[in-house]
């Protein structure tokens, strides 16, 4: 089983809270953009939930794949 991860780029403000919390899923590219995996393992459900919670722009969506 796995989780689907999406970031609403119209809302994302590049605070990097998600990069901090779940670096295995979210990262900054060298030119300053946010990049992320679109699928993540179920083990990361709690971490992804934290990232959603901490996102000042409330731009992260996590759901069943």
């Amino acid at each position: 089983m796995s989780l689907r991860v999406a970031v609403d780029r119209a809302h994302c403000e590049l605070h990097g809270q998600c990069v901090e919390r779940v670096p295995s899923v979210f990262r900054f590219t060298d030119d300053g953009d946010l990049d992320h995996l679109t699928e993540a393992d179920d083990d990361l459900a709690d971490d992804l939930s934290d990232a959603q919670f901490l996102c000042p722009a409330q731009a992260i969506e996590v759901g069943p794949a």
């Binding site: 990097g16 670096p23 953009d33």
Partner: peptide
């Protein structure tokens, strides 16, 4: 104006 540097700064 350089958000991509945040992880390093943290």
């Amino acid at each position: 104006g350089m958000p991509e540097t945040l992880p390093k700064l943290r």
